[in-house]
Computed example of a mutant assay.
Amino acid sequence: MEEYFLIIIRTLFLYFLIIFIFRIMGKREIGELSILDLVVFIMIAEMAVMAIEQPKDPIIHTLLPMGVIVTIQIVFAWISLRSKPFRELLDGTPSVIIHKGKIDDKVMKKQRYNYDDLLLQLREKDIFNLADVEFAILEPSGKLSVLKKDDEEEASQSLTLPLILDGEVQTTHLDMIGKTAFWLRKELRDRGFKNIQEISFCSFQNGQFYVDEKNH
């Protein structure tokens, strides 16, 4: 009886502890989890199960590794906010699978992404003909973002595409709206932004620029 009571107490304690841990790790949809988040979630879940199944084992044997993992995740998240290369190393980068109606086989092979995967995700978006696709971007989360040919002009006016992230020009997004890096630099200089590296975020929508400079 005492063992059952201990199992119940541990279960409740770990339940609320894991909720607290996930809260401090930040808000993100399940489908948007990075590899790092997924590994942390799996390891914490496994530790919690072992702690419940072994009630005689000291709870510190579970809390200590949990604390180490959460600390690592928080430190990595902090570094990711300040380093784009480190963020790309952990989370990956979007891959353009279809560019201006042409499928990039090299990118597909690099991502171990086959035509069955592509056709399946297109069907999930009610697209049954590859010829209808102007751009298809495989996101780090595994989701496929699609821009149809008949929606290209409308989408270029309605979608917010970052042209600069953390001081780096996003050439893929410039290609999607039919602009060049030279055009972007000129437009920004005309608006008083001479150093692109000092810009944390820049987008172009409905003929208007939104520019956010880095805080110092």
Rank of each mutant, 00 (worst) to 15 (best):
residue 57 D to R: 15
residue 182 F to M: 07
residue 167 G to F: 07
residue 210 Y to R: 06
residue 212 D to H: 14
residue 42 I to W: 10
residue 85 P to F: 09
residue 97 I to W: 00
residue 195 N to H: 12
residue 181 A to T: 15
residue 97 I to P: 00
residue 52 I to M: 13
residue 175 D to I: 02
residue 150 D to S: 13
residue 148 K to F: 06
residue 117 D to L: 01
residue 148 K to Q: 15
residue 156 S to L: 13
residue 153 E to N: 15
residue 116 D to Y: 04
residue 44 I to K: 02
residue 120 L to F: 11
residue 125 K to T: 05
residue 147 L to G: 06
residue 173 H to L: 07
residue 14 L to T: 00
residue 8 I to G: 01
residue 191 R to T: 03
residue 21 I to N: 01
residue 200 S to Y: 08
residue 3 E to I: 15
residue 60 I to V: 11
residue 16 F to R: 03
residue 25 M to D: 04
residue 199 I to P: 00
residue 12 L to N: 02
residue 212 D to A: 12
residue 110 K to Y: 08
residue 158 S to I: 10
residue 113 Y to E: 06
residue 190 D to V: 00
residue 89 L to Y: 11
residue 4 Y to D: 07
residue 48 A to I: 01
residue 180 T to I: 12
residue 117 D to K: 01
residue 14 L to V: 00
residue 181 A to K: 12
residue 43 M to S: 14
residue 141 S to H: 04
residue 151 D to E: 15
residue 140 P to Q: 07
residue 166 D to N: 14
residue 29 E to S: 15
residue 176 M to I: 13
residue 46 E to P: 00
residue 119 L to D: 02
residue 198 E to H: 09
residue 163 L to V: 03
residue 193 F to C: 10
residue 71 T to M: 14
residue 215 N to M: 11
residue 27 K to T: 10
residue 90 L to S: 04
residue 160 T to D: 05
residue 30 I to R: 04
residue 99 H to I: 02
residue 55 P to H: 08
residue 9 I to V: 14
residue 177 I to A: 08
residue 144 L to F: 11
residue 184 L to W: 02
residue 119 L to H: 02
residue 118 L to V: 13
residue 106 K to W: 06
residue 161 L to E: 02
residue 195 N to D: 15
residue 203 S to G: 13
residue 99 H to K: 13
residue 167 G to A: 12
residue 25 M to T: 06
residue 102 K to E: 13
residue 6 L to C: 01
residue 128 F to L: 11
residue 65 P to N: 11
residue 88 E to D: 11
residue 9 I to A: 13
residue 144 L to I: 09
residue 105 D to Y: 03
residue 165 L to T: 10
residue 165 L to W: 01
residue 49 V to A: 09
residue 15 Y to G: 03
residue 45 A to N: 12
residue 183 W to L: 07
residue 11 T to E: 01
residue 151 D to C: 06
residue 205 Q to L: 11
residue 204 F to G: 00
residue 147 L to K: 08
residue 105 D to A: 03
residue 54 Q to L: 10
residue 181 A to M: 08
residue 44 I to H: 03
residue 106 K to V: 06
residue 14 L to R: 00
residue 154 E to P: 01
residue 131 A to I: 05
residue 157 Q to E: 15
residue 192 G to Y: 07
residue 207 G to I: 05
residue 92 G to W: 00
residue 178 G to N: 07
residue 202 C to N: 05
residue 53 E to T: 10
residue 158 S to C: 03
residue 144 L to R: 05
residue 84 K to T: 10
residue 187 E to W: 03
residue 182 F to N: 10
residue 25 M to A: 05
residue 26 G to W: 06
residue 208 Q to M: 07
